[in-house]
């Protein structure tokens, strides 16, 4: 068990490293270096960067030195909590991102929970009542979820909400709470707004999970141990939930690692369509304005968050599956 978690941790560290390299590459890709564009940006604003300031910045980021030195300096600054300046906003990147990162986490986790909370019972139902009306319905919804990209779904729902109810279903807060400080009322407002984006984000993953759960459970239902359980005299619902569902849960749980990155990815585009105050719209704006420190930092933070989430889910999986838990080596 410890080796399993250990392996996962090592892999997570490598993943974070890979993400940091990619984020660094994104920062480096546009032509010209950061300081030059910073000076140019400042000039358009009418303020002048002195040579001395420019020189300090160059040294701080190791410009002009080999690329790995620059990478190292950048990582070191990040380790100190300094993610650089956003050129677009002329404020530190951390300030610009602010609570948007946490709202991204909230939306993603909500979508993940919703995905699971719905996919599990629906998948079980579909398998136990194979070829029933409910099963066909679930299959149909599943295909919609798979075939309609979530940003299109968001668009359609937004349109329907607008035309049918004349209501704007986007956003995470009512207007009066948009910039309000945190309070219980604001949290409640957030919870009220959460289901629609969470559902849109979760639908594709849910469709996939239902298919996985259904297929696995159909396999498991034919296994002899189900007959054993039945022949003991257990009531049928208990037979199903204690044994085959429990076994089918394992492959189901192991997909969580791939569901989270998928949801986080989707949240970027969906946030844009629905106008959610997450990092999504910020990332797009930063990319279009070539505000690379902001963009790189967002990519880095999203990646790291996803890795942490995946790691947590892996540990959860160990806890669920005694075959791994009891493995002695």
């Amino acid at each position: 068990m410890l080796t399993f978690i250990g392996r996962r941790v090592v892999l997570a560290i490598f993943t974070v490293w890979a993400i940091s390299v990619l984020a660094f590459a994104i920062i480096q890709l546009p032509p010209g270096d950061y300081v030059t564009s910073y000076i140019a940006q400042m000039a358009t604003m009418g303020s002048v960067v002195t040579d001395e300031e420019a020189q300090n910045l160059r040294i701080q980021y190791g410009l002009g030195r080999p690329i790995y030195v620059q990478y190292y300096k950048w990582v070191k600054l990040i380790a100190q909590g300094d993610f650089g300046m956003s050129m677009e906003w002329r404020r530190p990147v951390t300030e610009v991102i602010g609570e948007r990162l946490w709202l991204t986490v909230v939306v993603s986790v909500a979508a993940l929970i919703l995905t699971w909370a719905l996919a599990l019972p629906i998948g079980v139902y579909s398998a136990v009542r194979q070829y029933s009306v409910g099963d066909y319905l679930a299959t149909f919804v599943g295909f919609i979820g798979l075939a309609v990209p979530n940003f299109l779904l968001a668009l359609v729902l937004l349109y329907l909400g607008f035309v049918l109810f004349n209501a704007h279903i986007g956003g995470l807060f009512s207007p009066e709470f948009n910039d309000a400080p945190w309070s219980w009322a604001r949290v409640w407002d957030l919870l009220k707004h959460l289901p629609i984006p969470a559902l849109i984000l979760g639908l594709a993953g849910m469709a996939q999970q239902i298919r996985i759960m259904r297929a696995n459970l159909l396999d498991e239902l034919r296994k002899p141990y189900v007959v054993t359980a039945r022949s003991k005299g257990l009531p049928e619902p208990r037979v199903i939930t204690k044994y085959p569902v429990r076994v089918a849960l394992n492959p189901f749980a192991s997909t969580i690692g791939y569901t989270l990155p998928y949801i986080v990815s989707g949240s970027i585009i969906v946030s844009l369509v629905l106008g959610l105050p997450t990092v999504g719209p910020l990332l797009l704006k930063a990319l279009i304005a070539q505000d690379m420190f902001l963009a790189g930092t967002i990519v880095l933070l999203l990646g790291v968050m996803t890795v942490i989430g995946t790691l947590v889910s892996d540990v959860l999986l160990v806890w669920i599956d005694p075959r791994i838990r009891l493995e002695e080596t």
Binding site: L22, L29, P261
Partner: peptide
């Protein structure tokens, strides 16, 4: 391991970064 790493990175922000560049 490479595949696992690639699969646990949210791809869309990454492509967005690359495409924007």
């Amino acid at each position: 391991r490479t595949i696992e790493i690639l699969r646990s990175i949210p791809t869309i922000p990454l492509w967005m970064g690359l495409a924007a560049a």
